[in-house]
Amino acid sequence: MLRLILTRIFLGCLTLFAVTILIFAATEILPGDVASAILGQGATPETLAAFRIELGLDRSAYVRYFEWLSNALQGDLGVALTNKREVLATITPRLINTLFLAGYAAAIAVPIAIFFGIVTAINEGKWIDRAANIVTLGAISVPEFFIAYILIFVFATKLGWFPSLSTVYSDMGFWQKLHVVALPSITLTMLVTAHMLRMTRASVLAIMSQPYIEMAFLKGLPRNRVILHHALPNAAAPIISVVALNLAYLIVGVVVIEVVFVYPGVGQYMVDGVSKRDLPVIQACALIFGGTFVLLNTVADILSIMVNPLLRHSR
């Protein structure tokens, strides 16, 4: 088991390394001439030449890549092109904000999704299952911003319970922060819960069709006991990977939600960077999102190795 886990960690590091190459290639090699890609077609040859030197484009690509990578590893993410501020100094408080929002949403979504996922699987075909199916399908099918704007319309504009913009400051109290961030986190919760609930339900149902479950029923055990003692321990591994997969989904969903609510997080920073073609900002944000994605996937794999009853006793 230890060997499996170590292999997985090694693979995760390898993927992370490949992701850095991919980010660098997509932003600095693919566009051909980065300087004219950023400055646009109106730039004069003199400004282009000066900008190339500022970006260090006179050196070869792999030298720049390793310099960028080693700087990033030491915490130096470069300087934003537009306002000349350190990217790291700007991104750190924003990252904390994003993690706060994502953690807030996850804290509500995970228990609800797992509980109702199991309940709907047990009551397959009954009214609660059908109702959950319709609600979750609806939540998955509509775009994030539709849910967000409906929530704003009802709870911020009509009822006035929550603010429609989620502006947070560093000196804000914890409870006040919870109140201000309520709407974006409810939006995220709805999206993630819907995905997670459906996948949890599917993985519990997959376990319920196994021969040993049928055997337990044939022995005459009551339904609750079969589910709690026979099905759930084996459903734990798939449920854990479902949770991790959806947390990974959360970090992508956060981009659109942050823009809707003008929430000062990494997602909004990236969209800002994209609209201003601010290369170091885009690279840094992509690195954070890509890294989190790889990290969560790796953690999911490791956890499901650890809880798998078949792998628990090492030979």
Binding site: T15, A18, A248, I251, V256, C285, G290, F293, V294, N297
Partner: peptide
């Protein structure tokens, strides 16, 4: 291994 939205943002920018 990179979220598709982040990838698209990078390329389109």
């Amino acid at each position: 291994s990179i979220p598709i939205l982040v990838f698209a943002l990078m390329i389109l920018s």
